[in-house]
Design a protein around this nucleic acid. Sequence first.
DNA 1: GTGAAAGCGCTAACAA
DNA 2: TTGTTAGCGCTTTCAC
Lengths: 345, 345
Amino acid sequence: MSEIFSKATLSDIARELNITAATVSRALNDHPRIKETTKKAVREAAVKLNYQPNKLASSLRLGKSNIIGVIIPSAEINFFGSVIHGIEKMANENNYNVLIYQTNELYEYEKRGVQTFLQSQVDGILASISKETINLDHYNEIKKRGVPLILFDRVSDALDVSSVVVDDYAGAFAATKHLIEQGCKRIAHIGGQQHVNIFNQRLKGYIDALNTHNIPVNEDLIVYGKVSIDSGKECMKKLLEGSQRPDGVFAVEDFTALGAMQAIKNANKKMPEEIAIIGFANEAFGEYLTPSLSTVNQQTIRMGEEAARLFFEGLDKMNLYKTKSRKLVLEPEVICRQSSIKFYK
Amino acid sequence: MSEIFSKATLSDIARELNITAATVSRALNDHPRIKETTKKAVREAAVKLNYQPNKLASSLRLGKSNIIGVIIPSAEINFFGSVIHGIEKMANENNYNVLIYQTNELYEYEKRGVQTFLQSQVDGILASISKETINLDHYNEIKKRGVPLILFDRVSDALDVSSVVVDDYAGAFAATKHLIEQGCKRIAHIGGQQHVNIFNQRLKGYIDALNTHNIPVNEDLIVYGKVSIDSGKECMKKLLEGSQRPDGVFAVEDFTALGAMQAIKNANKKMPEEIAIIGFANEAFGEYLTPSLSTVNQQTIRMGEEAARLFFEGLDKMNLYKTKSRKLVLEPEVICRQSSIKFYK
DNA sequence: GTGAAAGCGCTAACAA
DNA sequence: TTGTTAGCGCTTTCAC
C-alpha cells in the first residue's frame, strides 16, 4: 500500500479547475450566483478527487457545529436508548449530529460531560440529570454561555429551561387507581430517592389516588429504596414481614417491581391473586415475565423527539433564552398485564 | 438578562495580561519553558474570564479531533449499550470523546454515518456492521483515507481490519454440548440470517457439537428466522408441528429464545423437562423469565474496551494500517439457568 | 459570475 | 522565557 492518504481540500479542487477556493465553496453550497457549468465542473472534480468537506473548519468559521450534545445517565438503560433514538431521528432530519455522554449517574462525570460539550462547541445540549446530582452550577454555566439547554425526564425546577417530562404524578395516580379498581385494599408503594423529582412525583400521585378514593394512607405501607432489582427485593421483603401485609404494590419503576416480584415468589404468594403489582417505565422485559408485569408507558421515543423539537424551535427563534421556557408534559398510560388484573371484565 | 454572552478566547486572556496568545496557549498546556508565575497568572485570568478552550480550533490546527466515532445498529439493544459503555470507559481514560451513530440496521444510514464521521474528522471509527449491509465500499473508503477502523461483533472477513468478536462458533458449540449433557437427543436450532457472519458461525458450532457427540444432524430440526421475538415464536411453532419433536432447542440469540419459550408455553410443554432451551447473548431479561433462560455470555463491556484498546494501540504505532490487522477473539461462557438444567448434580 | 483577502481560535516553528 | 508569524480549511464581504 504505497499510496499516500491524501485528503482533498477546496483549494485542491480549485487548482484542478483554475478557479479560486471561494468559487468552489460557493459552487458546492449551491450559491445562486454561480454559473451552472461551473457548479457542474466543481461537483465532478470533487467526486474525482474524492473530496469530503472538513466540518471542523466550516464549523469554526461559521461558529456553529451542527452537533447536539446529549447527556444521559446510562446507555444501558433501555429508556434512554429509546429517547436517544427519538433525538437522533429529529437530528438527522435537520442535518444535525448527536454526541452522547454517559454520566453513569455520577455528578463528577456530568460536570465533565458539560465541559466537554461546551469545549466541543455543540450547538445545544439535551440532558437528563443524574441521580447523584444536587448542585446545578454546571447547568447554569451552559445557560450563561448562551448555549441552548433542554432537559428531559430527569429535570429540575431550579433551572429555568425548557423541558420534556412524562407526567409522573398522573402516571402514578393512574397506576394506583388501577390497583384500587382491581379491589386492592392495602396498597403499598416502593419509592425511590425523594430528592429525584420524578420519584417524588410518583409518591404524590400514589398518595392522592388513595385520598381521592377514601383509602387511608398508611405510612407502614410506604418504603423507600434505591431503585434497583436488589433494592426492590429488599423493600418487598420488609413489606411482607410488616404487620400490614399489602395486597397491592405500586413500584416506582420496573426494575424495582421485578425485585419485588422475586421477593413475592420467594414468599410463595400468588400474583396477582394475593398481591397485585404494577411498575413504571415499560421496560422491555416486563412483557415476558411470569406473570407479565403491568406498568406505565412513558412514550420514550416521543420524549426524545419533543426534546429535539424544542431545541430546533429555539434555534428558529434565534435565541432560546429570550422566550419563556416551555414545559412539555407527555401523558403516560397504564399498560395492564397479568401482574395486576384480578378481575376480568 | 442584559448580559452579552461573551466567549473568552486566548487573545482575551493575553490582552488582560499584556502578553501574547501564544504564551497563553503554552501556559495553559503546561509548556515546560513557561515561567511558573506566568502560568499562575494565566490560569487565574482564565478562571476570571471563564475561559473554555475551543476544541474545534485546536482540532483544526492539530489535525486531530480526539473523537472516536462509533457506529452501531441500535442503541436500544442492550448488547450495544454495554459495548459503548466499554468504549467510553477507555475513551475517557485517554481523553477522547465518543460520537455515536445509529444505523437502525439500514445500509443507507450506515453509509451516511461513515460520511458524517469522516467529515467530522474523527480520529478513528469503531463499527458494528448492520444486518442489511452487504456492500462494504463505505468501509473501504475509511481505510483509503487513512482513518483507523476497528470492527466489533458484526465484522466481515472481506475487510482487512482489526476486529473484536466473541467466538460465536465456540459459544454455540458449548451451548449445544450443554444440551447434550443434559440428555437431549433431538436438539433443534433456530438460526438467523446466514449472510450475517455471527449467525452462520453459531450454526456451524451447533452442527459440529452434534457431530462430535455422534448425534446425527437432522435438517428438519433446523429452521431459520429473522432474529426477533415474533420470529422465534413462529419458528418454534413450526418445530413443534414437525414430525421430529425436539427435546432441546439452541436459539441463535435471546430474543429468539424468548419467542420460542412463548410458543412452548402455548403448546403446554414443560421447560426444561420436555424441552430444554438455551439462547445466546445474555440479555438482561433472561435472568427474570420463568423459567430463567440459559444463555451464552459475550463479555460486552470487555468487547468495547478491547475495540478501543486496539484503536489506541494503533495510534501509538503511528499508523494502524502499517501493521498486520489483529483479530481479537473473546471466549464466551455458557450461563446455566433453569430453562436447560434437567439434572442437578 | 468570480477573485482577493481576511479571519474563525488555536498552535508550532523560528526568532530573539 | 516569550514574541512573531504563519496556517489548519473554510466562508464571506467587498471589489470588479
